[in-house]
Design a protein around this nucleic acid. Structure first.
Lengths: 181, 181
DNA sequence: TACCGCATGTAAACGGTTACATGATTAC
DNA sequence: GTAATCATGTAACCGTTTACATGCGGTA
């Protein structure tokens, strides 16, 4: 179901075939989840059945004919709804990045609140780290110390980035309504 | 199957019941994956069947009796084998953190090579980011720019941490053979 | 003609979560 | 007596990956 939303988001940018989507995503496996054909094609079928997509068969001059999918108004509605709603739980990096990638489908205010939500989640996570550290004091072994130190470093970097991004965005939204500057 | 390995690693530290494992892990959901009871108990059964664990029923004074699992020699062998072998693909944060948490089951040299492997993976990922950025130049929209910027920041932070950690570790291993300093 | 890349698709297996069921002990 | 916590377990379901099958067009 998560893969479906990402696919829908990519198709909001431009019409593509399943194969196109696969190629686009497989280079970006580190950024977002890259579905295999086994989930990609069924997802396209399902969303077409739901009326979120339309499909055109395009006879390519060279090579076999392709099925190009295009998002519908209903699809855009569903997409916006999904991006706007907060994550249920867990601060999955990929889940957040997926929404970030699809930021163009959000208004400036929505994007800002999305980043703020993330910031508060990461902050809470840092507090949890500190608490966990204090609970068992220095008694923990090397592995836990390394892991905690590591995740603390990443969380700090993330908070710093969010702070910068929010500052930049707020400056822009104060001037114009659009973010595409 | 990944959950199994993490459970095995936790039991390498000390014998625990399924419930203990669950409680330990659910506070750490941001660090590593936290399996539900529906996968936790079956995993314990499976590993017991394979001879990786033994089980003792402990009649607790207060409360119901608990099933305490203990790792076997075969279990330790399988565990070491798993931690030492490199990740097939993808630089999943949780997968790496899981191994980091279980660092105590590795020799100093093994741990160092694990960190070095991670460093080269993250480096390769940064190169990929740069290439991807140059390929479509400034043509990409806000979403992609944000996502790329964000992941670049995290990757930089991770590389910096790995560098520091490797330096610290090498200093230790030069002195003694053990890492528990 | 044999092979490779493009392009689409399906079935089985896998790993996991959700939801439920059970039962004992402690606290109100 | 009933609610909450401790503790273990199972079955149904869900989304994904893996592996396979198909066919077209270019090329060696």
């Amino acid at each position: 179901m998560k893969a479906q939303r990402l696919i829908l988001g990519l198709l909001a940018r431009q019409p593509m075939s399943g194969y196109d989507i696969k190629r686009l995503l497989e280079n970006l496996e580190w950024l977002v989840s890259s579905p295999s054909f086994g989930s990609l094609y069924p997802a396209l079928h399902a969303m077409s059945d739901q009326g979120l997509l339309t499909m055109d068969v395009v006879r390519n001059g060279n090579g076999p004919s392709r099925k190009v999918y295009r998002i519908t108004d209903a699809g855009r509605r569903v997409l916006r709804e999904w991006i706007a709603q907060p994550e249920k739980r867990g601060l999955s990096l990929k889940a957040f990045l997926t929404k970030l990638v699809l930021a163009d489908n959000l208004s400036g205010a929505e994007l800002v609140s999305c980043l703020q939500r993330r910031r508060s989640q990461v902050s809470a996570y840092c507090d949890g780290l500190d608490r966990g550290g204090r609970e068992n004091g220095e008694a923990t072994d090397l592995g836990w110390r390394l892991a905690r130190d590591y995740s603390q470093a990443l969380a700090d970097a993330e908070l710093a980035w969010l702070e910068r991004a929010l500052e930049r965005l707020s400056r822009r939204t104060l001037i114009g309504g659009t973010l595409d500057a």
